[in-house]
Design a protein around this nucleic acid. Structure first.
Lengths: 173, 173
DNA sequence: CAAAAGTAATTGATTAATCAATATCTATCT
DNA sequence: AGATAGATATTGATTAATCAATTACTTTTG
């Protein structure tokens, strides 16, 4: 088996960071905890990321990338698009729970660089959804995209807080 | 002018806390900053609240109370209810920007006691909205309440992040 | 003067980030 | 193959700052 070096190690730190940040939030996550999960020493984290903040942003961007990719993987007919995308959103918390958690966590962080990254990530997702809705000829695409994103975020928050009543669509299931 | 004592001082700390927490988030707010804004010394805060966490929860609960009260103040006919409530929600970020900010901030905090308070606050709001919708005979009250809350939260997040495009209903205004 | 209101000074814990050192490879030369 | 050297990977020890919370003291007021 190929042993990990350089870039691989960086990947490991990013994955470990995703898990720990998702569970404990930004401020309650220490670089030591991430290092431990990655199986390396705490100072070594700083060989790959100059600050904890920079590491978090890298992790957050990956999370947004993955979520967006999940949407892009939805193959659907124009008539079914809204339905299929909604389904994809609801499945996210199963397939990418940590990425969803990170997205929610990012919203509440006041550090300016992190806030900027969060805004960009959310913008990207909204832009993609809107574009798809328009391409599918969905009427009132703007309004529908807004509703779609609103439902998605509420679904995420409901999952993250473990407050199922907030998102009460699985009622009839 | 009547000088503040006891309970008044506590109120001052709660108000100062609201402002500072809303601007800086939970973790970046120090008890010293709150004390400064309240015009007292840092240790004196602990005469009124045994921990910073307890103080935050008190501030958060007040914020939820005020938001709920704003809804309760909406006088409306059954036919107009959804419309009027939506309007009330949109006005919240003007009347109660700090309370809204706090609500958003609360979502991302992992401390268990704070998370519990956040969940309870959101539950209270949802329960009230649902009850009102039902009382007004709005069909599909559950579903409508969910949509209503989702839109409201998105509106809040959009305001808190200063990302207006997210909530694109004021487009035609 | 005694209680209430308040503060200055300090502590103890935490933790991001730095630094200096060591271990582990990889390649080259003999 | 075995010695040698340079680079790359990795760590232990430490630091410097921050901050919630405590303690012991002072001021105000009725």
């Amino acid at each position: 088996m190929v042993r990990s070096k350089g870039q691989d190690r960086k990947e490991e730190i990013l994955e470990a960071g995703l898990e720990v940040f998702a569970e404990r939030g930004y401020y309650n996550t220490t670089t030591a905890l991430i290092a431990e999960k990655a199986g390396i020493s705490q100072p070594y984290v700083f060989r790959f990321f100059t600050t904890k903040e920079e590491l978090f942003i890298a992790v957050l961007n990956r999370a947004f990338d993955r979520i967006l990719q999940a949407f892009k993987n939805v193959e659907s007919s124009p008539e079914q698009l809204d339905n299929d995308m909604t389904k994809a959103y609801e499945e996210l918390s199963v397939q990418y729970p940590n990425e969803i958690a990170l997205q929610v966590i990012g919203i509440g962080i006041t550090e300016e660089t992190i806030r900027t990254a969060t805004k960009e990530g959310l913008s990207r997702i909204r832009a993609y959804v809107l574009e798809e809705f328009k391409a599918a000829g969905i009427p009132d695409a703007e309004k529908n995209a807004t509703t779609f994103i609103a439902m998605g975020m509420m679904c995420n928050i409901s999952y993250f807080l473990d407050l199922p009543e907030l998102f009460a669509f699985n009622k009839n299931k």
